[in-house]
């Protein structure tokens, strides 16, 4: 149904530094997001998870290299990076509260000139039927879970090759989170869309991910396959509450 939509592309980050003013938040990160896979970044508050996503999209002062596919995008502007196929669902979702659900999706397709936009709207409405039911409703009146689905669907409207998700579980009830993550897995399995997810909810994140990184104080402290991390005593103690 949706298999032909996305290209397969990975991301490679080397020696990434980022700072806000004189405060250095990232101190030389190296990591890889394999094409078609789901990678997850774990870490405590203030470890630099959100900044990592912002740095990849060039939304803060950075040095180091960020390579999308085989193209270096570390000096590319944010809007241009979006055009190259990287979509970012920010923390707190960032939907347009006084635009209808449908209009939110249409803004996601703002840069597209092809005539398949309507088809894509139908496609994501099929995958997220709740959004279809509420297509004329203002986004601000949707529930938190629905807004998160809308934010993801809106990001998918620009036909990304790589989807960055910043704490999609934030502020949602546990049942809703599970439902949402199952949808992410389905999306990844059905389309092969590469995903990089930042999460505090380590249990769920490691269940769905192929690969994981743990950030501490702006550095990669641990990395490995999701199963390896789940069984790592340090991770269990710090993040899984075992």
């Amino acid at each position: 149904m949706v298999d032909d939509v996305f290209d397969e592309v990975g991301l490679k980050v080397e020696n990434l530094h980022a700072s806000y003013g004189s405060v250095e938040v990232l101190r030389g990160l190296d990591f890889e997001v394999p094409a078609k896979g789901v990678s997850v970044i774990l870490g405590a508050n203030g470890a630099g998870k959100t900044t990592t996503l912002r740095a990849i999209c060039n939304m803060c002062d950075t040095t180091g290299s960020v390579v999308l596919g085989d193209e270096d995008i570390s000096r590319t502007g944010t809007a241009e990076i979006v055009r190259k196929g990287m979509a970012h669902v920010p923390q707190g979702r960032g939907t347009f509260p006084e635009l209808s659900t449908l209009d939110n999706l249409m803004v996601g397709a703002y840069t597209r000139k092809d005539n398949e936009v309507k088809d894509d709207v139908d496609r994501w409405f099929e995958i997220f039927p709740r959004l279809a039911e509420r297509h004329a409703q203002m986004a601000g009146s949707l529930s938190g879970g629905e807004q998160q689905m809308l934010a993801v669907a809106r990001a998918l409207m620009c036909r990304p090759r790589l989807l960055l998700l910043d704490e999609p579980s934030l502020g949602l009830a546990p049942l809703i989170i599970e439902d949402l993550f199952e949808r992410f897995i389905t999306l990844n399995k059905e389309t092969g869309l590469t995903m990089l997810i930042v999460e505090q909810n380590a249990n769920l994140a490691l269940d769905m991910a192929d690969y994981g990184y743990v950030i501490e104080s702006g550095e990669i402290a641990l990395h490995g396959s999701a199963d390896q991390l789940k069984n790592d005593p340090a991770v269990q103690e710090a993040y899984l509450g075992a």
Binding site: L99, Y110, C158
Partner: peptide
């Protein structure tokens, strides 16, 4: 796009 800027200009810019 005008209304999107009104609601959230950063997000609007991110979508081009």
């Amino acid at each position: 796009s005008m209304r999107a800027i009104r609601d959230n200009d950063t997000a609007a810019a991110v979508y081009g």
